[in-house]
Design a protein around this nucleic acid. Sequence first.
DNA 1: CCCAATTTTTCGGCATGCCTAAATTTTGCC
DNA 2: GGCAAAATTTAGGCATGCCGAAAAATTGGG
Lengths: 241, 241
Amino acid sequence: MPPARKTALSSGSSSVQDYVKVIYAFTEWQDKPITSSQLAVRLGVANSSVSEMVRKLVELQLVDHRPYSAIELTGAGRRLALTMVRRHRVLETFLVQELGYAWDEVHDEAELLEHTVSDTFINRMAAKLGNPQRDPHGDPIPSADGTVHVPNAVQLEELDGGHTGRITRISDADADLLRFFSSEQIRLDDRVEVVGRRPFGGALVVRFGPTGSARELDLGDQAAAALWVHSDPHPGCLLAS
Amino acid sequence: MPPARKTALSSGSSSVQDYVKVIYAFTEWQDKPITSSQLAVRLGVANSSVSEMVRKLVELQLVDHRPYSAIELTGAGRRLALTMVRRHRVLETFLVQELGYAWDEVHDEAELLEHTVSDTFINRMAAKLGNPQRDPHGDPIPSADGTVHVPNAVQLEELDGGHTGRITRISDADADLLRFFSSEQIRLDDRVEVVGRRPFGGALVVRFGPTGSARELDLGDQAAAALWVHSDPHPGCLLAS
DNA sequence: CCCAATTTTTCGGCATGCCTAAATTTTGCC
DNA sequence: GGCAAAATTTAGGCATGCCGAAAAATTGGG
Ligand SMILES: [Mn+2]
Ligand SMILES: [Mn+2]
Ligand SMILES: [Mn+2]
Ligand SMILES: [Mn+2]
């Protein structure tokens, strides 16, 4: 009889949870699966640590992996990841809405708490918050049964001049950047219009805010890549089949 | 130059935090300091594990300890313990008041969360709860600056017949016992009168509830020891100097 | 298509915190 | 006071998750 493979349907250690969550998050807004070294950077650990942990995740049947190739979640891995993502984002929402945190202050606290709360805790907290559909940065909150709806959105960076849209998501990877957006009064759901590019790889010029009282602003690459917009259909766009 | 002794004013690992908290809690309602094996039982670890960790706690200057004798907190140890006790009890209060947990369901969840919340988190949560003075079991909540007021209370077990008082605290050590008290409608602040003892080391007979509609009840030793009462002054009691 | 740069894995080690078993010290009873 | 029982500490090990260095595989420019 085989040695009773570990199921890990339960939850795994907090390291396992973070690995799986980062692997999931990497493909949330684009398709390419994460590589070993990308995972290492995002987790702040050495490449060798990732190799070892990935072997363990394969044993736990949370990821599929052929040596030297990218890492992909199994069904069970995706379920676990969605649980962790839900926990993280419900907690962030609570911190902002109930405890008065600023949106740049919530990530680190949620990063730790997500591993110690129970499902009951999160479900009751979510109910108390009115089962929010997205967190303070616009990231979608999976439901308790593991379904998510990731909005159609592109990075502002990738839009050409003339396009308009609405800010759907602001990456929370860099707290300083979030503070910059705050200071510029850039918020979720603001309308935005791409005016154009400064010449020779310069900044992206955008217009923010309600159509009447819009402010024009130059955004650097980092900033433009952190803003995701739901783009309005555009006359000049032939792909709008 | 000495090897820069570790201060641990920060916080220590979650094991360190639990050890210090249990050492503190042991002397919260009585005076004798905890011994190595008592600590082991309360933490659910082997005696040898305690010996090792106590050596570490001495290095961290959180406890004083001569080999083979009892373990006592230093000033820094007591401060850390009070931080942890505050966290634990604020969390329990939140779980009951805001998330609708029953009082027998909160301990295990708080036991984990206490290690991952920040001071900001706890202080804001406490403010939101109105800075409660005690948790759902009547245990006092230290303030953020580390002051506690432990009410004068004795175990119901130790009162002789005729004494009356008010329930101040219900030990949360045993969840089954808490459920028993719930089912018997015994709550914090209920009035209680000791009627007497059943003969030959039998149960303690007590009367609960408002003076008019009181219920009489037989309590076993476990139950009588878990209930702490603020005893009214009693005519027959000569110690009421 | 080949080889050097890059990526990934393997190897040996370290820190934490736990365990069991074997000393060692203390305690309490005759 | 002496000695057996009980409490405590020490010794040797294990699991987890991390590291740096070395080995192995992949890759991509020429
Ligand atoms: Mn986040
Ligand atoms: Mn995390
Ligand atoms: Mn704890
Ligand atoms: Mn309590």
